[in-house]
Protein backbone atom coordinates (compact mmCIF):
# COMPACT_ATOMS: atom_id res chain seq x y z
CA UNK A 1 0.00 0.00 0.00
CA UNK A 2 1.10 3.51 -0.68
CA UNK A 3 0.72 4.43 2.97
CA UNK A 4 3.57 2.21 4.14
CA UNK A 5 6.44 4.12 5.65
CA UNK A 6 9.86 3.33 4.34
CA UNK A 7 13.07 5.21 4.49
CA UNK A 8 13.41 5.25 0.70
CA UNK A 9 10.62 7.82 0.47
CA UNK A 10 12.19 10.23 2.94
CA UNK A 11 14.76 11.91 0.65
CA UNK A 12 11.97 12.82 -1.80
CA UNK A 13 10.18 14.62 1.02
CA UNK A 14 13.36 16.37 1.99
CA UNK A 15 13.85 17.46 -1.59
CA UNK A 16 10.36 18.92 -1.64
CA UNK A 17 11.31 21.05 1.34
CA UNK A 18 14.16 22.59 -0.62
CA UNK A 19 17.03 20.87 1.21
CA UNK A 20 19.98 20.05 -1.02
CA UNK A 21 19.79 16.71 -2.84
CA UNK A 22 21.09 13.85 -0.76
CA UNK A 23 21.15 15.92 2.43
CA UNK A 24 19.02 14.21 5.16
CA UNK A 25 16.53 16.56 6.87
CA UNK A 26 17.62 18.19 10.11
CA UNK A 27 16.51 16.23 13.18
CA UNK A 28 14.28 18.99 14.56
CA UNK A 29 12.72 20.02 11.23
CA UNK A 30 9.30 18.34 11.81
CA UNK A 31 7.69 19.90 8.76
CA UNK A 32 9.83 17.77 6.44
CA UNK A 33 9.00 14.47 8.14
CA UNK A 34 6.60 11.99 6.64
CA UNK A 35 3.30 11.49 8.54
CA UNK A 36 2.17 7.92 9.17
CA UNK A 37 -1.59 7.73 9.78
CA UNK A 38 -2.77 5.66 12.78
CA UNK A 39 -3.65 2.05 11.85
CA UNK A 40 -6.94 0.64 13.07
CA UNK A 41 -6.44 -3.16 12.87
CA UNK A 42 -9.52 -3.98 14.97
CA UNK A 43 -11.64 -1.79 12.73
CA UNK A 44 -10.43 -3.62 9.63
CA UNK A 45 -11.15 -7.00 11.22
CA UNK A 46 -14.64 -5.88 12.23
CA UNK A 47 -15.32 -4.59 8.71
CA UNK A 48 -14.37 -7.98 7.22
CA UNK A 49 -16.65 -9.78 9.69
CA UNK A 50 -19.56 -7.51 8.84
CA UNK A 51 -19.03 -7.95 5.10
CA UNK A 52 -19.06 -11.76 5.49
CA UNK A 53 -22.29 -11.67 7.54
CA UNK A 54 -24.03 -9.34 5.07
CA UNK A 55 -22.93 -11.50 2.16
CA UNK A 56 -24.36 -14.57 3.90
CA UNK A 57 -27.67 -12.82 4.48
CA UNK A 58 -27.93 -11.55 0.89
CA UNK A 59 -27.05 -15.01 -0.39
CA UNK A 60 -29.83 -16.42 1.77
CA UNK A 61 -32.31 -13.84 0.46
CA UNK A 62 -31.42 -14.73 -3.10
CA UNK A 63 -31.32 -18.53 -2.83
CA UNK A 64 -33.83 -19.54 -0.12
CA UNK A 65 -36.99 -20.51 -2.07
CA UNK A 66 -39.30 -19.62 0.84
CA UNK A 67 -38.89 -15.89 0.09
CA UNK A 68 -40.70 -16.51 -3.25
CA UNK A 69 -39.41 -13.46 -5.08
CA UNK A 70 -41.71 -14.27 -8.00
CA UNK A 71 -44.78 -13.77 -5.81
CA UNK A 72 -43.21 -10.61 -4.36
CA UNK A 73 -42.73 -9.03 -7.78
CA UNK A 74 -46.27 -10.04 -8.83
CA UNK A 75 -47.78 -8.12 -5.93
CA UNK A 76 -45.45 -5.29 -5.04
CA UNK A 77 -46.75 -2.94 -7.75
CA UNK A 78 -50.20 -4.49 -8.15
CA UNK A 79 -53.18 -2.15 -8.16
CA UNK A 80 -54.55 -3.42 -4.84
CA UNK A 81 -51.26 -2.84 -3.05
CA UNK A 82 -50.62 0.58 -4.61
CA UNK A 83 -54.15 1.66 -3.60
CA UNK A 84 -53.51 0.38 -0.08
CA UNK A 85 -50.25 2.34 0.06
CA UNK A 86 -52.23 5.44 -0.94
CA UNK A 87 -54.64 4.88 1.96
CA UNK A 88 -51.70 4.46 4.33
CA UNK A 89 -50.17 7.69 3.06
CA UNK A 90 -53.45 9.57 3.44
CA UNK A 91 -53.96 8.35 7.01
CA UNK A 92 -50.38 9.35 7.84
CA UNK A 93 -50.69 12.78 6.24
CA UNK A 94 -54.02 13.65 7.89
CA UNK A 95 -52.98 12.41 11.30
CA UNK A 96 -49.61 14.17 11.08
CA UNK A 97 -50.98 17.54 10.02
CA UNK A 98 -54.02 17.51 12.30
CA UNK A 99 -52.12 15.87 15.16
CA UNK A 100 -49.33 18.44 15.12
CA UNK A 101 -51.76 21.36 14.71
CA UNK A 102 -53.76 20.21 17.72
CA UNK A 103 -50.54 19.32 19.53
CA UNK A 104 -49.12 22.81 18.99
CA UNK A 105 -52.28 24.39 20.36
CA UNK A 106 -52.14 22.06 23.38
CA UNK A 107 -48.45 22.86 23.92
CA UNK A 108 -49.11 26.60 24.09
CA UNK A 109 -52.15 25.99 26.31
CA UNK A 110 -49.88 24.16 28.75
CA UNK A 111 -47.37 27.00 28.56
CA UNK A 112 -49.97 29.74 28.91
CA UNK A 113 -50.52 31.72 32.08
CA UNK A 114 -54.19 30.76 32.22
CA UNK A 115 -54.76 27.99 34.80
CA UNK A 116 -57.88 26.88 32.90
CA UNK A 117 -55.99 26.30 29.64
CA UNK A 118 -53.12 24.64 31.51
CA UNK A 119 -55.42 22.19 33.23
CA UNK A 120 -57.38 21.33 30.11
CA UNK A 121 -54.20 20.66 28.13
CA UNK A 122 -52.59 18.68 30.93
CA UNK A 123 -55.70 16.50 31.32
CA UNK A 124 -55.96 15.89 27.59
CA UNK A 125 -52.33 14.79 27.38
CA UNK A 126 -52.68 12.63 30.46
CA UNK A 127 -55.75 10.81 29.09
CA UNK A 128 -54.60 10.28 25.53
CA UNK A 129 -51.15 9.12 26.49
CA UNK A 130 -52.73 6.65 28.91
CA UNK A 131 -55.02 4.88 26.43
CA UNK A 132 -53.35 2.46 24.02
CA UNK A 133 -53.90 3.60 20.46
CA UNK A 134 -55.57 0.34 19.44
CA UNK A 135 -58.06 0.58 22.32
CA UNK A 136 -58.87 4.17 21.36
CA UNK A 137 -59.36 3.24 17.71
CA UNK A 138 -61.81 0.48 18.56
CA UNK A 139 -63.68 2.97 20.75
CA UNK A 140 -64.05 5.38 17.84
CA UNK A 141 -65.04 2.52 15.58
CA UNK A 142 -67.86 1.77 18.01
CA UNK A 143 -68.81 5.39 18.64
CA UNK A 144 -72.23 4.89 17.13
CA UNK A 145 -72.94 2.27 19.76
CA UNK A 146 -72.27 4.87 22.46
CA UNK A 147 -73.92 7.84 20.78
CA UNK A 148 -76.37 7.05 17.99
CA UNK A 149 -76.77 10.72 17.16
CA UNK A 150 -74.54 13.72 17.62
CA UNK A 151 -76.16 17.12 18.02
CA UNK A 152 -75.96 20.68 19.22
CA UNK A 153 -78.31 21.95 21.89
CA UNK A 154 -78.73 23.05 25.49
CA UNK A 155 -76.77 20.80 27.90
CA UNK A 156 -79.19 18.32 29.53
CA UNK A 157 -81.92 20.01 27.46
CA UNK A 158 -83.37 19.82 23.95
CA UNK A 159 -81.18 19.56 20.85
CA UNK A 160 -81.45 22.05 17.97
CA UNK A 161 -79.60 20.00 15.41
CA UNK A 162 -78.48 16.39 15.32
CA UNK A 163 -77.02 13.93 12.88
CA UNK A 164 -76.62 10.18 12.69
CA UNK A 165 -73.16 9.33 14.03
CA UNK A 166 -72.28 6.76 11.39
CA UNK A 167 -73.13 9.05 8.49
CA UNK A 168 -71.10 11.91 10.00
CA UNK A 169 -67.98 9.87 10.75
CA UNK A 170 -67.16 7.09 8.31
CA UNK A 171 -64.66 4.37 9.10
CA UNK A 172 -61.76 6.36 7.63
CA UNK A 173 -62.94 9.41 9.58
CA UNK A 174 -62.96 7.39 12.78
CA UNK A 175 -59.43 6.18 12.06
CA UNK A 176 -58.19 9.71 11.32
CA UNK A 177 -59.79 11.02 14.51
CA UNK A 178 -58.30 8.22 16.58
CA UNK A 179 -54.81 8.61 15.12
CA UNK A 180 -54.98 12.43 15.38
CA UNK A 181 -56.08 12.53 19.01
CA UNK A 182 -53.41 10.02 19.96
CA UNK A 183 -50.76 11.84 17.96
CA UNK A 184 -51.71 15.26 19.33
CA UNK A 185 -50.94 14.22 22.91
CA UNK A 186 -47.40 13.24 21.94
CA UNK A 187 -46.95 16.16 19.54
CA UNK A 188 -47.95 18.56 22.33
CA UNK A 189 -45.09 17.42 24.52
CA UNK A 190 -42.61 17.49 21.61
CA UNK A 191 -43.61 21.04 20.68
CA UNK A 192 -43.52 22.13 24.33
CA UNK A 193 -40.03 20.68 24.64
CA UNK A 194 -38.93 22.68 21.62
CA UNK A 195 -40.51 25.90 22.86
CA UNK A 196 -38.95 25.79 26.33
CA UNK A 197 -35.58 25.15 24.67
CA UNK A 198 -35.74 28.59 23.01
CA UNK A 199 -33.61 31.15 24.85
CA UNK A 200 -35.73 33.23 27.21
CA UNK A 201 -34.03 36.39 25.95
CA UNK A 202 -35.73 35.88 22.59
CA UNK A 203 -39.16 36.17 24.20
CA UNK A 204 -38.07 39.21 26.19
CA UNK A 205 -36.75 40.90 23.07
CA UNK A 206 -39.98 40.18 21.21
CA UNK A 207 -42.01 41.49 24.16
CA UNK A 208 -39.81 44.57 24.50
CA UNK A 209 -40.40 45.36 20.83
CA UNK A 210 -44.15 45.14 21.35
CA UNK A 211 -44.62 42.36 18.80
CA UNK A 212 -48.16 40.95 19.19
CA UNK A 213 -48.37 37.67 21.12
CA UNK A 214 -49.49 35.37 18.30
CA UNK A 215 -46.91 36.87 15.99
CA UNK A 216 -44.23 36.28 18.64
CA UNK A 217 -45.13 32.60 18.66
CA UNK A 218 -45.34 32.21 14.89
CA UNK A 219 -42.43 34.33 13.81
CA UNK A 220 -39.94 34.27 16.71
CA UNK A 221 -40.55 31.24 18.93
CA UNK A 222 -41.71 28.42 16.66
CA UNK A 223 -39.04 28.77 13.94
CA UNK A 224 -36.36 28.55 16.62
CA UNK A 225 -38.16 25.77 18.47
CA UNK A 226 -38.30 23.78 15.22
CA UNK A 227 -34.64 22.90 15.53
CA UNK A 228 -35.35 21.01 18.75
CA UNK A 229 -38.76 19.75 17.57
CA UNK A 230 -37.81 18.26 14.20
CA UNK A 231 -35.62 15.28 15.15
CA UNK A 232 -38.27 13.96 17.55
CA UNK A 233 -41.11 14.95 15.24
CA UNK A 234 -39.42 12.98 12.45
CA UNK A 235 -39.46 9.95 14.74
CA UNK A 236 -43.14 10.50 15.43
CA UNK A 237 -44.15 10.80 11.77
CA UNK A 238 -42.25 7.64 10.88
CA UNK A 239 -43.76 5.92 13.89
CA UNK A 240 -47.17 7.08 12.74
CA UNK A 241 -46.63 5.80 9.19
CA UNK A 242 -45.99 2.34 10.58
CA UNK A 243 -48.56 2.88 13.32
CA UNK A 244 -51.31 3.18 10.69
CA UNK A 245 -50.96 -0.59 10.31
CA UNK A 246 -52.87 -0.81 13.60
CA UNK A 247 -56.06 0.41 11.91
CA UNK A 248 -56.36 -3.00 10.26
CA UNK A 249 -58.55 -3.75 13.31
CA UNK A 250 -61.12 -1.41 11.73
CA UNK A 251 -60.95 -3.28 8.38
CA UNK A 252 -59.66 -0.23 6.55
CA UNK A 253 -57.92 -1.08 3.30
CA UNK A 254 -54.49 0.24 4.22
CA UNK A 255 -51.28 -1.58 3.36
CA UNK A 256 -51.04 -4.08 6.19
CA UNK A 257 -54.75 -4.97 6.06
CA UNK A 258 -54.64 -5.64 2.30
CA UNK A 259 -51.52 -7.77 2.64
CA UNK A 260 -53.21 -9.84 5.34
CA UNK A 261 -56.30 -10.31 3.19
CA UNK A 262 -54.19 -11.50 0.26
CA UNK A 263 -52.09 -13.99 2.20
CA UNK A 264 -55.15 -15.18 4.03
CA UNK A 265 -56.50 -16.12 0.58
CA UNK A 266 -53.39 -17.58 -1.06
CA UNK A 267 -51.26 -18.63 1.91
CA UNK A 268 -48.10 -16.88 0.65
CA UNK A 269 -47.34 -15.24 3.98
CA UNK A 270 -43.61 -14.54 3.68
CA UNK A 271 -43.48 -12.86 0.23
CA UNK A 272 -46.49 -10.68 1.07
CA UNK A 273 -44.97 -9.57 4.34
CA UNK A 274 -41.93 -8.70 2.23
CA UNK A 275 -44.16 -6.56 0.01
CA UNK A 276 -45.39 -4.62 3.04
CA UNK A 277 -41.85 -4.34 4.43
CA UNK A 278 -40.48 -3.03 1.13
CA UNK A 279 -43.13 -0.30 0.98
CA UNK A 280 -42.71 0.74 4.60
CA UNK A 281 -38.93 0.92 4.16
CA UNK A 282 -39.27 2.94 0.93
CA UNK A 283 -41.71 5.43 2.46
CA UNK A 284 -39.67 5.78 5.64
CA UNK A 285 -36.56 6.47 3.56
CA UNK A 286 -38.37 9.23 1.69
CA UNK A 287 -39.49 10.74 4.99
CA UNK A 288 -35.93 10.62 6.34
CA UNK A 289 -34.63 12.48 3.29
CA UNK A 290 -37.41 15.06 3.61
CA UNK A 291 -36.57 15.46 7.31
CA UNK A 292 -32.94 16.20 6.45
CA UNK A 293 -33.90 19.07 4.15
CA UNK A 294 -36.53 20.48 6.50
CA UNK A 295 -34.00 20.48 9.35
CA UNK A 296 -31.50 22.21 7.09
CA UNK A 297 -34.08 24.90 6.27
CA UNK A 298 -34.71 25.69 9.93
CA UNK A 299 -30.99 25.71 10.72
CA UNK A 300 -30.53 28.93 8.74
CA UNK A 301 -28.78 31.55 10.79
CA UNK A 302 -27.75 28.95 13.37
CA UNK A 303 -24.26 28.50 11.96
CA UNK A 304 -21.98 30.89 10.16
CA UNK A 305 -22.13 28.60 7.14
CA UNK A 306 -25.08 26.28 6.45
CA UNK A 307 -24.36 22.53 6.58
CA UNK A 308 -23.63 21.02 3.13
CA UNK A 309 -26.29 19.07 1.23
CA UNK A 310 -25.50 15.39 0.60
CA UNK A 311 -24.61 16.28 -3.00
CA UNK A 312 -22.17 18.98 -1.88
CA UNK A 313 -20.77 16.50 0.63
CA UNK A 314 -20.25 13.81 -2.04
CA UNK A 315 -18.50 16.31 -4.31
CA UNK A 316 -16.25 17.40 -1.47
CA UNK A 317 -15.38 13.77 -0.68
CA UNK A 318 -14.39 13.06 -4.31
CA UNK A 319 -12.30 16.22 -4.37
CA UNK A 320 -10.52 15.42 -1.11
CA UNK A 321 -9.91 11.80 -2.16
CA UNK A 322 -8.32 12.84 -5.44
CA UNK A 323 -6.28 15.46 -3.59
CA UNK A 324 -5.13 12.79 -1.13
CA UNK A 325 -4.21 10.50 -4.02
CA UNK A 326 -2.17 13.28 -5.63
CA UNK A 327 -0.42 13.92 -2.32
CA UNK A 328 0.38 10.23 -1.95
CA UNK A 329 1.98 10.20 -5.38
CA UNK A 330 4.28 12.93 -4.21
CA UNK A 331 4.90 10.60 -1.22
CA UNK A 332 4.69 13.36 1.37
CA UNK A 333 1.56 13.45 3.46
CA UNK A 334 0.60 16.91 4.62
CA UNK A 335 -0.10 17.22 8.35
CA UNK A 336 -3.82 17.67 7.70
CA UNK A 337 -4.47 15.57 4.60
CA UNK A 338 -8.20 16.23 4.13
CA UNK A 339 -8.16 19.86 5.08
CA UNK A 340 -10.86 21.36 7.27
CA UNK A 341 -13.81 19.03 6.83
CA UNK A 342 -16.42 21.77 7.52
Amino acid sequence: MGLTTDSAAAPAGAAAQGAGPGTPPAKDDLASLKVVPARHYARWAAAVAVIVLVAQFVHGLATNPVWEWGVFSDYVLSETIVQAVWVTLQLTAYATVLGFLLGTVLAFMRLSRSPVLQTVAWTYIWIFRSIPMIVQLVFWFNLSALYKELGVGIPFGPAFWSVDTNSLIGTIGAAVIGLTLHQAAYAAEIVRGGVIAVDHGQLEAAAALGIPRLRQIRRIVLPQAMRAILPTAGNEVIGLLKGTSVVYVMSIGELFYRVQVIYGRNGRVIPLLLVATAWYVALTSLLSVAQYYVERHFARGADRTPPPTPIQRARRLVRSLSAAAAQRNRSVMPLNPLGDSR
Binding site: G201, Q202, E204, A205, A208, G210, R213
Partner: peptide, 23 residues
Protein backbone atom coordinates in the same frame (compact mmCIF):
# COMPACT_ATOMS: atom_id res chain seq x y z
CA UNK B 1 -50.78 42.15 27.73
CA UNK B 2 -52.02 43.50 24.39
CA UNK B 3 -52.05 47.07 25.71
CA UNK B 4 -48.72 46.69 27.48
CA UNK B 5 -47.21 45.54 24.17
CA UNK B 6 -48.60 48.67 22.53
CA UNK B 7 -47.00 50.87 25.21
CA UNK B 8 -43.65 49.14 24.71
CA UNK B 9 -43.46 50.32 21.10
CA UNK B 10 -42.70 53.77 22.57
CA UNK B 11 -39.84 52.40 24.66
CA UNK B 12 -36.72 51.07 22.96
CA UNK B 13 -34.81 48.47 24.96
CA UNK B 14 -31.25 47.30 24.28
CA UNK B 15 -30.18 44.13 26.08
CA UNK B 16 -26.82 43.15 27.47
CA UNK B 17 -26.66 40.07 25.19
CA UNK B 18 -28.25 41.75 22.18
CA UNK B 19 -31.07 39.16 21.85
CA UNK B 20 -31.21 39.54 18.09
CA UNK B 21 -33.41 36.97 16.39
CA UNK B 22 -30.81 34.52 15.04
CA UNK B 23 -33.05 32.96 12.37
Amino acid sequence: EKDVLKQRTHIGFVFQNFNLFPH
